[in-house]
Amino acid sequence: MALNDPVEPEVEMERDFVRPFLATAGRTRSSLSDLRIETLVEATAKLEDGLRFEAARVAKLCREPNSVAEISAKLKIPLGAVKVIVGDLVGSNHVRTHKTIEGETPEDMQLISRLIAGVRKL
């Protein structure tokens, strides 16, 4: 819920960009607060026609899975704005988001083992 948490009184992070996801479809999975900087975003098969400029660029980049942070860095869009755009694109079914491994479920254990094996091989 980081985005909805009260920020320190004197500091507002990109408040202008942060608005509730409700504007589109209100599906819980795609709420902005689930979107982490490492969350991979991937385009669906839906065409990008009709999307406004920045949203179209994001959707296009995400034909290959890219994290929220990568979208921000590669397209030079501030993080907060990327989250809003991705939230909208999830709502309009142009992209979907993938799970992150946070070490909390039993299936995470297997994934972590694969991460370890991978790092060992580096």
């Binding site: 004197e10 500091v11 202008d16 942070a69 990568e70 921000s72 501030p78 993080l79 907060g80």
Partner: peptide
């Protein structure tokens, strides 16, 4: 390393 930016507005109320 990629660089990402977040804009922060501080209102000195």
């Amino acid at each position: 390393p990629l660089r990402t930016e977040a804009k922060m507005t501080s209102a000195s109320l």
